[in-house]
Each structure stands twice: as C-alpha cells, then as structure tokens.
Amino acid sequence: MPADFWKLWTSSAVTNLGDGITMVAGPLLVASITDSPAAVAGAVFAQQLPWLLFALVSGAWADRLDRRKLVVTVNLMRAVALGGLAVAVGSGAASVPLIYAVFFLLGTGETLADTASSAFVPALVPAERRPVANSLLYANFNVLNQFAAKPLGAWLFVVAAAVPFGVNALTFALAAALVAAIRSVPPPEKRPPARLRTDIAEGVRWLARHRLLRTLALTMAVGNVVFSAAFAVFVLYAEQRLGVSDVGYGVLLVAFAVGGLLGTLVAPTLIRRLGSTALLRAGLLIEVALHATLALTREPVVAAAMIVVFGVHTTIWGVVVTTIRQRDVPSSMFGRIASVYAFLDLGGAAVGSLVGGAVATAYGLVATYWTAAAAMALVAVAAWRPMAAGDAAPARQRTI
C-alpha cells in the first residue's frame, strides 16, 4: 500500500477508537446528571440527527470543496468541541443541553468528514488493491470501535468523567495532522456555480440511472429497516425467547463484532476467488437466514452462531459495495453518492426501530423476526438479477 494510504488508515484507526470511547462515555455522562431514560437516549439521537438533516447537503459540499482540507478542518473543530466538553465536565459545568449541543456538532462534522473521505481510497490505492484497503479500514471499526473502545471508554469514565472526552479530542487532533500530511488526494474538479439543490438532484439522478448501485442502495435501506426493527427488541428476545442472562445478552452482541472481524480477514480473498456477484447474492440469503433462524430457535448457541455468520456477511457486503462504488462512481460524484447511501442507511435504521416496537407489541417478539425474514426474501427475489452486474466493467455499468 502507498504511504499515504497508511496515513489515512492510521487516521481512521484513531478516530474509530475515539468515537467508540465517546459512544460509551456519552450516555454514562448523561446518566450521571439525570436518571431519565429519554434524556440518555437523546444523546445518541442528537448525534444521529445531523445525518437525517444534512447528509445530502454535506455530500454536495464534499464534491465542491477541497476534500482533504475539509476533513482536516472538521476534525480540528470536533477536537475543539470535545475539548470544551472535557473542560466543562471537569469543572462541573456540564449540562444535558450542553452535551446534546456538542454531540449534535460531532454528528454534523461526521456527515462532512465521512462523506468527503469516501473519495480518498480511489485516489490513493490502485483498483486491484482496493478490496484489501477497504478491508483494512473496516478492521479499524470492528477491532477498535466495537471491541477495544467500549471497555476503554467505560474505564476512562470511571477514572475521571472528563478524561474520555479529552482523549477523543486528542484523537481528532492527531487524525487532522495525519490527513493534512496526505498529498495524493487531488483537488476538486472545477465546476460551474450551482445551487446545492441542483447538485443534490444531479447526484440522485445519477444513482437512479445506475441499476446496480440503485439496487444496492435500496436493498441496504430495506435491510436496515427490517434489521433495526428486529433488533430494536433484541434484548427482550434474548431474555424471553433464548432465556439468557444480561451477560449472555452481552455475549450475543459481541458475536456481531466477532463476525465482523472475521469478515475483514476473508473479504479480499473471497472477492478475488468468488467475485462480487456471488458474494452479494449469498449476502441476501444470509439476511433471510438470520431472521428465520432467530424466529425458529430457542438455543442461544444456535443464535450466536448465526449472528457470527451474519457479522461476517455485513463486513464482506460493505467491502464489496464500497469497492463497486469506488469502481463505478466518477470522482466528482463521490460525495453525493456516499451521502445518499448514508441517508438511506440511517433513515432505514430510524424507521425500523419504530416499526420493530410496533410489530412486537401487536403480534409478539417472534413475529418481528418472521416479518423481517419475509421482507428480505422479497428483496432477494427483486435484487437477484440486477446483482448479476456486480462483476461487470465500469464502462458497461454506466450504460445500464
């Protein structure tokens, strides 16, 4: 890999660690101020809300501005925001509204930085090495954000409530320095002035005309609706259906991360040997199998094994889809296409959480998983043929 890629990878590593620390410490901080469940949940929502409000706008900006400078600036601003929160916590001046405001700023910065950085790998890494590069970046999330950061964030909060936020501020400052040192990302293409609405519409139209990427985006949106619907009540399912303790519930959650980590190890090899089409289609079947297995089984071991398989699939699916986007999307469109995917991703998750609670209340926990299995079976039928284009050449893709 080029040296600039390793700067990007290290930047991704430290920000994933910092994000994971704050993901744990944030709710703990709110809970130390108030015992309101709604207030604690509000901290998570405050960081997710900008994706629903600004994702498409951020994609348009990311395609017009210098992406490297944008990421550096946003990371520095997030470092300042978290540093301010750390000072407030340390001085006893932190309040729930202040925490919400900081988390909202973090989420807003995330919409810009994540969208802009989606164009980095194609600029830094040759096409034949991108599956490996994407797997390495996914490994940062699975190992650092999902594994290492969670216990570390809780421990740092116990040491001193301000410490985890100060540590996260330092990770953003370090990430900004690393991205600033990258020299291989080209400046944005010069484009005529246009309204943001025009830029956004152009990106949406481009995606709508691309059969494979359109299918993948819609599949992901529906998949997130049914997944979030099913797992919004997963803690109740684990206790009432599987009969596990709180520790057992935690083990089931870790099974997702274990599968994700395994997926990062095998994704490049499987893409090379089986091709994108076979992996995408297999992923559709695994989606159906996950929900059907959870609807049928009462054995925690069976559920955990299926969750590990699903975790492997989600990482492989992510690497394949990211690689296809890097292959087919013009550089001038990267930000907008990535923002549409993010909007559908989080939008589907938000809708699914509401649907899951309603279905479980009306028809029972198991009905939620049967509904998810049926929905994904229909998606698999609809998406099966378009996914035949997964291994096609880019030039052909744009004519579909």
Rank of each mutant, 00 (worst) to 15 (best):
residue 271 I to R: 13
residue 23 M to A: 09
residue 356 G to S: 14
residue 197 R to G: 12
residue 125 V to F: 00
residue 94 A to K: 00
residue 268 P to T: 06
residue 221 A to R: 05
residue 396 R to C: 07
residue 310 F to K: 06
residue 12 S to T: 15
residue 166 G to Y: 08
residue 95 S to R: 00
residue 132 V to T: 14
residue 96 V to L: 00
residue 245 S to R: 01
residue 17 L to F: 08
residue 159 V to W: 11
residue 333 M to Y: 10
residue 333 M to L: 12
residue 352 G to A: 03
residue 72 V to A: 15
residue 63 D to C: 03
residue 358 A to F: 09
residue 282 A to C: 09
residue 242 L to T: 03
residue 354 L to M: 12
residue 87 V to W: 14
residue 26 G to S: 11
residue 29 L to A: 09
residue 83 G to K: 10
residue 11 S to I: 10
residue 28 L to P: 03
residue 76 L to N: 02
residue 338 A to W: 01
residue 267 A to K: 03
residue 112 L to H: 04
residue 327 R to P: 00
residue 241 R to S: 15
residue 364 G to T: 12
residue 162 A to W: 08
residue 122 P to H: 07
residue 39 A to V: 04
residue 213 L to W: 06
residue 27 P to M: 12
residue 62 A to V: 02
residue 12 S to V: 06
residue 207 L to M: 12
residue 325 R to K: 11
residue 57 V to W: 07
residue 227 F to M: 13
residue 333 M to Q: 05
residue 384 W to V: 10
residue 10 T to G: 11
residue 329 V to F: 03
residue 241 R to V: 15
residue 22 T to F: 10
residue 72 V to N: 15
residue 191 R to P: 03
residue 114 D to V: 14
residue 40 V to R: 00
residue 12 S to R: 07
residue 142 N to M: 15
residue 266 V to P: 09
residue 348 G to W: 00
residue 222 V to I: 05
residue 188 P to F: 03
residue 256 F to Q: 12
residue 397 Q to N: 09
residue 341 Y to K: 00
residue 83 G to R: 09
residue 332 S to N: 11
residue 185 V to N: 08
residue 123 A to V: 13
residue 345 D to E: 14
residue 168 N to I: 11
residue 32 S to Y: 08
residue 250 G to F: 05
residue 368 T to S: 12
residue 307 I to D: 02
residue 353 S to W: 13
residue 294 L to M: 13
residue 372 A to Y: 13
residue 9 W to Y: 06
residue 79 A to E: 07
residue 260 G to I: 01
residue 196 L to V: 09
residue 72 V to P: 09
residue 155 W to A: 13
residue 50 P to H: 02
residue 321 V to S: 09
residue 168 N to Y: 06
residue 233 V to W: 10
residue 390 G to F: 06
residue 73 T to Y: 11
residue 155 W to T: 12
residue 124 L to F: 00
residue 259 G to C: 05
residue 268 P to D: 12
residue 334 F to S: 13
residue 214 R to K: 07
residue 338 A to Y: 02
residue 332 S to A: 14
residue 107 G to A: 06
residue 162 A to S: 10
residue 303 A to G: 07
residue 308 V to N: 06
residue 221 A to N: 01
residue 78 R to S: 06
residue 96 V to I: 07
residue 115 T to M: 08
residue 245 S to Y: 01
residue 286 I to A: 10
residue 291 H to L: 15
residue 74 V to A: 08
residue 336 R to G: 01
residue 29 L to T: 09
residue 147 F to T: 11
residue 166 G to R: 02
residue 42 G to Q: 01
residue 379 V to L: 06
residue 257 A to T: 14
residue 81 A to V: 08
residue 383 A to Q: 03
residue 4 D to Y: 14
residue 236 L to G: 05
residue 315 T to Y: 02
residue 361 T to G: 11
residue 251 V to Q: 12
residue 139 A to M: 11
residue 301 V to K: 10
residue 206 W to A: 13
residue 324 I to Y: 00
residue 294 L to P: 13
residue 209 R to Y: 04
residue 332 S to D: 07
residue 144 L to M: 05
residue 234 F to E: 09
residue 32 S to P: 01
residue 117 S to L: 14
residue 174 L to I: 15
residue 255 A to Y: 10
